[in-house]
Simulated assay, not measured.
Amino acid sequence: MLRRLCAALVAAILLASLAACSTEPERSVGPAPSAGASSSAPTSGSSASTSGAASPTPSAAGVLGDPSEPVSLAALAQRRLDGGGLRIGREVLGSARHRQYEVSYRSGGLRVTGRLAVPNGAGPFPAVVLAHGYIEPSIYVNGQGMTRERAWLADRGFVVLHADYRGHADSAPDPSGGTDLRLGYTEDVLNAVLALRSWSGPVDDDRVALVGRSMGGGIVYNALITHPGLVRAGVVFAPVSSLAAENFDQFNRPDLDTVGVGAAIVRRHGAPEDNPRLWRGVSARPYFAAITEPVLIHHGKADDTCPPRWSRATARAMRAAGVEVALREYEGEGHAFGPQFDRSMQVTLRFLRSRL
């Protein structure tokens, strides 16, 4: 009986705190909540970023080295994060166990949009930031790319923030035009973590993880390397290679004779064979020793978009660097994880619950 009374008291205090925070003057970058926002939507909170999370830890700085090249993981580790100003827009989706909202937040001085899923109840809940895979920015829409994962995790008690990235949906344009080798997207994911923590909603700040798919898997690697200790764990599905040159050869080199982003990257940076120092500096694999969190990798053995040998090489390199890593491979599964999606998510759920 005493335990139930204590739980009820904690819930009441949390709800009162959320109500109080909803009346604070808004100091963040971003639009006012949409007119169609549900009256039951979570409130927006303070825009202040988590202190101390914006600068690299000694382990990251020591491993990454000289940040003088602005397009590098070393430079990203030195960049001040400004994530905050999470603004709740209209309710767009939900289930019997959670609600989803269009949101925006601040990242690198830009307005970045996303989709937030919040479980029913007072919380506080563990949280996950999702990093989606590549979708042509001109056709991408809000929350696209990891809709299954967002709903699945929210139904099981996680607050889930899906970052659209700069240049996607209603986010501000990408200042690099796509030529910064995904470092801006990584910054947006890192700032999404800070935006969740500065929000007055039911998030347990000490229990946050990153989950990425395909290109988003590489973004998760970058985030764990440049800001170790920011989250508690990382999970990736069908990730790209941890060597930037292999990704270039697979996805960008074929379009060098067109006006695509591959040609723009070469004009700005040179191909990997022309500028190996820069391409090493944006590759995760040489810097795995900076990672302090456990990593779970899922990969289908029939994946012909991101070959499973990439994840095998990544897992070997992580183990050699002292990272706690588990690689799960799925017989007959392709890049999109269709038949074995639920199985892979059950593995993910056990991993997250054990680490968070």
Rank of each mutant, 00 (worst) to 15 (best):
M1E: 12
L2I: 14
A7C: 09
A8Y: 03
A11P: 01
L14Y: 10
S17E: 13
L18P: 01
S22N: 08
S22K: 05
E24G: 05
S28M: 09
V29Y: 12
G30H: 08
P31A: 14
A32E: 13
A32V: 12
S34T: 12
S44M: 07
S46Q: 08
S47M: 10
S49C: 13
S51H: 10
S59K: 15
V63W: 08
S68E: 03
S72D: 09
A75E: 05
L76K: 09
R79N: 10
G83I: 02
I88L: 10
H98R: 00
V103P: 03
S107P: 08
P124R: 13
V128I: 14
V128S: 04
V129Y: 05
L130I: 05
A131Q: 12
P137R: 07
S138Q: 14
N142M: 08
N142E: 12
G145L: 02
E149K: 07
A154D: 04
R156K: 02
F158V: 00
V159G: 01
H162I: 03
R166L: 05
R166E: 13
H168N: 15
A172G: 14
L183F: 05
S198T: 13
S198D: 11
V203C: 03
D204F: 06
V208G: 08
G212H: 11
R213D: 10
G218I: 00
A223P: 07
P228F: 03
P228H: 10
P228Y: 06
V235K: 01
F237M: 13
A244Q: 12
A245V: 01
E246P: 03
D249T: 09
N252F: 15
L256K: 01
V259W: 03
V259N: 15
V259A: 15
V261N: 13
A264N: 09
A271V: 02
A271T: 01
D274P: 04
A289I: 03
T292F: 00
P294K: 04
S311G: 09
M318Q: 14
A321E: 05
E324L: 07
Y330L: 00
E331G: 07
H335T: 02
P339E: 14
S344Y: 02
L349F: 13
R350P: 06
F351V: 03
F351T: 01
L352R: 04
R353H: 13
L356R: 00
